[in-house]
Design a protein around this nucleic acid. Structure first.
Length: 965
RNA sequence: GCCCGGGUGGCGGAAUUGGUAGACGCAGCAGACUCAAAAUCUGCCGUUCGCAAGGAUGUGCUGGUUCGAUUCCAGUCCCGGGCACCA
């Protein structure tokens, strides 16, 4: 009876499918109610055309193991899967091939599902969601309308319906409590007398989803705007196309109103410190003050933002962002030419240039600001290092305390005032907060961090400024000029945006062509019927559908609500969320905001979606290279035809050496080759034209680093006559770790591994590679070891000749010890997501039981249950083989206490410095001084000190490890 | 530049967080079974001295605390990730 994993896995997968074994019940159906709930969620995939590679399932396997474990522990577990099926690549594909994105998406999803089922996940597919499904995006649109129809009440600190804001305006005008300051102030009467357009324009400034004109990240190549987190180093995250700032009408989410709550919420959830740090940095909260400076000889005031009001006496110059209108109002006649020239220069520089080369530049405006405390005249400069979009777009520069200000002052020879005495060395700025202030008027003698409060109070008393908190985070751009996304249920009439009157969903229409519409509009603008209805022509961004999907899984077929309140109360927060770090400041921030809004409006009962987040590491590809030298006939070169004449594959280090020789020095290159490979036919016949190339080779035809030359020639027939330079009869490939991708020929398809070793082996091997959180290059080599383990495990139950060999004998103490040790280890490891050590635990137990020749049911049965989450198919098969008629999926996880106690010796708990230790484990010569230091709570040690030594002390390598009475 | 992680055999990685460093697996070496192969099993496997028993040394580097440090502290050098003119 052999371990026939192919048959076993096929059988069980179809059995589980037929019996709906993984169906999850909501409480109203009766089945879940008496159990506590547990919600395990994976970040759902974008169904790309490339299918799954071995990197994808890492997190899915971990979550599947944990779900199955929790289920065996008696929880009602929700562990769904779905697809984030709106997005750019499908649309790009449509542009290229003319195939409708819905068609390709459907095909891709089918492939994904087949691949996932192959690995044996316990998804309830009846709960699948697809963001591009009208039944799903109906509710994305509905939630969008909730955002559109809400504002953030700063007094109650939550989202409220827009009608409440209208009421506030009716009663108190623009100065109503809780209403953010507005550009225009108005009384209740004025409000009521505004025409509709004016009223709507004002309301738009408060809606949580709003439309505005602003500088957006415009990507010409993609023909759409991008959110800040979708732009990396001045190019688009997807595709790496250049991004420029452009003023456009766009939809936004007013996420800035939630900045404080998004920060506060981090304290209540289990995210990794790194993740919290990333979100905190992105939100970028800082507190300080805004201060007005009079400008000499102008009615104008210059308002700056600073986090260090304590340094107000150290201000030696001011800097304004070049984009500010104020610049032109205050520039002096003498400086006008210089200022204009500088403005032109700034305008000529692209965002990328600005980021790439940060050189010190700027120009004096000719104006002076007056320090409100000592009346000093401070020159006002403009420079591109001050950003128009942050704070007031103007700063007070304190060179002795700020590195950038210091460099600027040095560069332009501006005299530096020292207010921190010896803490400033004249060479480098010192941003300390601990120094005692000097040359600082009424702040003299104060420690800087204490002086901050004093300074802010003085500023407020003088009426020249206020305490101010600023955030780096901006409102999120929420519209895309694309086709394959949710349409906005919004109509425009006379410049007023209104909720679409029809019944949701507003279905995405079919288009003839997917190209952009007129004037930077989306493809929807090409459809006459759409435009005739005055519908919004933008669509929502990719993160719209993913911002709330975790709620839809709870109640996926509800057509009355996005999710019944009773159901969302039952399933509550996601207990465990597994996914990559790449969504740190995108999806994870947006979905937290949406959750808070839905909570504020009373639709759900909690304001954080994810209780605990585990970031799985990326599995990188381990690429292999061959190093090609190609020669062409001289005659062909002269004719301009570079037909490859002969090909040679050389060693990596020789290739590197060749690369160091200039391309123009072909003779030198050939000489080097002749020296290295004097026997090579190819080189002896070499002519002048040589080309060098480092080529990716498919990792699947390589064993380690050794190239299978025959297989290589079959896959690339053009190299049939190529010559290979061998070392010890082998061609050794170069190796590099890169991102796993088809174009690098370093992807490994899980289907192939499942076919060769089985799903159970594949699952366990992915876990065995190392901690889930860790990124590591894929290496197929070790998979044999895990496969051997499963075969060995099988042989504890059955044997080729005799068949089933499980006995009903009583276990020995030694066997029980193995069992209990293993139970303890696997449980603890599974609880703390240490799946790699848990797999080791199974291997150790199997080895030990094999050595003990233990085939006893009472020992093997609990182990089998233990194994179920990790290798469900083999566990189910063996469970039935040993006579169970029920499903192992319903078995109850064994809750034995692990017992280490052996018959012959006892370990006594000893407390050292207040910490409990289970063993005494000390060097012999060090024992006496240590014992004197110990807090003695232990009879044996007490007696020892009284002169009654224990019966036996066990030493290992001179160290006492155990005490026996 | 700033902020987080992390440096342990030939390799992936363990070490219950201050108590036998290198579990488990891969690779390697030697052997058993076999006509042979596959499969399976046994032994060895950080470095170094030794025929051996055994000794010395060893967790990036330099110090420190401790009876005892891979673990804690200070300094330093590498590697990975995030942010990057946010005043």
């Amino acid at each position: 009876m052999e371990y026939d994993f192919r048959r076993i896995e096929k059988d069980w997968q179809s059995k589980w499918k037929e019996s709906n074994a993984y169906k999850v019940f909501n409480p109203e159906h009766g089945k879940g109610l008496n159990k506590p709930k547990y919600y395990v969620l994976d970040m759902f995939p974008y169904p790309s055309g490339a299918g799954l590679h071995v990197g994808h399932p890492l997190g899915y396997i971990a979550s599947d193991i944990y779900s199955r474990y929790k289920r065996l522990k008696g929880f009602n577990v929700l562990h769904p899967m779905g697809f984030d099926s709106f997005g750019l690549p499908a649309e790009q594909y449509a542009l290229d091939t003319g195939q409708h994105p819905a068609v390709t998406t459907k095909k891709n999803i089918e492939t994904f599902k087949a691949q996932l089922d192959n690995i044996g996940f316990c998804y309830d597919w009846e709960r699948e969601v697809q963001t591009s499904d009208p039944a799903y995006y109906k509710w994305t649109q509905w939630i969008f309308l909730q955002l559109f129809n809400s504002f953030y009440n700063r007094q109650t600190q939550k989202a409220e319906n827009i009608t409440q804001l209208i009421k506030l305006f009716d009663e108190h005008g623009s100065s109503a409590a809780g209403v953010a300051p507005s550009a225009i102030s108005f009384t209740p009467e004025e409000w009521k007398n505004f025409d509709e357009k004016s009223q709507q324009d004002i309301l738009m400034n408060y809606r949580l989803a709003f439309c505005g004109h602003g500088e957006v990240n415009w990507c010409e190549a993609l023909g759409t705007v991008l959110a800040n987190d979708e732009v990396v180093n001045g190019v688009s995250e997807r595709g790496g196309h250049p991004v420029v700032k452009k003023k456009l009408r766009q939809w936004y989410l007013r996420i800035t109103e939630y900045a404080d709550r998004l920060l506060e919420g981090l304290e209540r959830i289990e995210f990794s410190e790194a993740m919290k740090e990333m979100q905190t940095n992105w939100i970028g909260k800082s507190s300080g003050a805004e201060i007005d400076f009079d400008i000499k000889g102008h009615g104008q005031k210059l308002r700056v933002y600073t986090t260090r009001p304590d340094t107000i006496f150290g201000v030696d110059f001011m800097v304004i962002a070049p984009e500010l209108d104020l610049v032109n109002e205050i520039k002096s006649a003498a400086q006008t030419a210089a200022v204009d020239e500088y403005l032109a220069y700034v305008k000529s520089r692209s965002e990328r240039e600005r980021m790439a080369e940060k050189k010190i530049s700027g120009v004096f405006t000719g104006a002076y600001a007056i320090n409100p405390f000592d009346g000093r005249e401070i020159p006002v400069w403009i420079s591109e290092y001050v950003l128009a979009g942050y704070g007031t777009g103007a700063i007070m520069a304190v060179p002795c305390g700020d590195e950038r200000d210091h460099k600027f002052a040095r560069h332009f020879n501006i005299p530096i005032t020292n207010i921190i005495g010896s803490n400033y060395d004249g060479e480098e700025a010192n941003p300390t907060k601990e120094a005692i202030l000097e040359n600082s008027g009424f702040l003299n003698g104060l420690v800087m961090k204490d002086a901050m409060e004093v300074a802010i109070k003085a500023i407020e008393e003088k009426g020249i400024g206020t305490r101010k908190v600023n955030f780096k985070m901006r409102d999120a751009a929420f519209s895309r000029q694309r086709y394959w996304g949710e349409p906005f249920p919004i109509t425009w009439k006379d410049g007023i945006a209104k909720e679409w009157k029809g019944e949701l969903p507003l279905v995405l229409p079919t288009v003839e062509k997917y190209g952009p519409g007129p004037d930077g509009q989306g493809p929807l603008a090409n459809i006459p019927e759409w435009v005739a209805q005055e519908l919004e022509t933008n669509t929502m961004p990719g993160y719209a559908g993913s911002s709330w999907y975790f709620l839809r899984y709870m109640d996926p077929h509800n057509d009355k609500a996005f999710c019944d309140r009773k159901v969302s109360d039952y399933w509550n927060q996601v207990d465990l969320y597994i996914g990559g770090t790449e969504h740190a400041v995108g999806h994870l921030l947006y979905s937290r905001m949406w959750t808070k809004v839905l909570f504020d409006l009373g639709y759900i009962g909690y304001d954080e979606p994810y209780k605990k987040l585990v970031n799985q590491g990326m599995i990188q590809g381990s690429s292999r290279f061959v190093y090609r030298v190609q020669f062409s006939k001289m005659l062909d070169v002269l004719k301009g035809e570079l037909q490859p004449f002969s090909t040679l594959f050389i060693k990596e280090k020789d290739f590197d050496e060749l690369m160091n020789i200039s391309v123009n020095d072909n003779q030198k290159r050939i000489a080097l080759l002749k020296e290295k490979y004097p026997k090579s036919e190819v080189i002896l016949n070499a002519t002048n034209a040589m080309s060098l190339a480092k080529l990716h080779v498919d990792v699947n035809i390589i064993d380690g680093v050794e190239l299978d030359i025959e297989a290589f020639k079959i896959s690339k027939p053009e190299y049939l006559n190529a010559e290979f330079i061998l070392e010890d009869g082998k061609y050794i490939c170069g190796a590099e770790v890169e991102k796993m991708s088809k174009s690098k020929y370093n992807t490994v398809n899980p289907d192939d591994l499942v076919m060769k070793y089985g799903a159970d082996t594949f699952r366990m091997y992915e876990m065995f590679l190392g901690p889930v959180e860790m990124s590591k290059p894929w290496d197929t080599k070790g998979i044999e070891g895990v496969h051997r383990f499963l075969k060995k495990f099988w042989r504890l139950f059955a044997n080729e000749t005799k068949g089933l060999i499980v006995t009903n004998d009583e276990p020995t103490a030694e066997e029980l010890k193995v069992l209990h040790k293993t139970i303890k280890k696997i449980e603890e490891d599974t609880e703390r997501f240490s799946f790699n050590t848990a797999v080791s635990g199974f291997m150790i137990a199997t080895n030990e039981l094999t050595d003990l020749k233990c085939h006893k049911r009472s020992v093997l049965e609990p182990l089998l249950v233990l194994l179920t989450p990790y290798a469900p198919h083999i566990a189910a098969e063996l469970w039935n083989l040993i006579g169970h008629t029920d499903s192992i999926l319903d078995a109850s996880y064994p809750e034995f206490e692990a017992k280490y106690v052996a018959e012959t010796s006892k370990e006594y708990p000893v407390s050292i410095n207040g910490k409990l230790r289970t063993t005494m484990n000390i060097a012999l010569d060090a024992a006496q001084p240590m014992v004197e230091k110990m807090v003695l709570e232990n009879e044996v040690v007490q007696k020892w000190l009284e002169g009654k030594p224990p019966k036996k002390i066990i030493f290992v390598k001179g160290k006492m490890v155990n005490v026996v009475v």
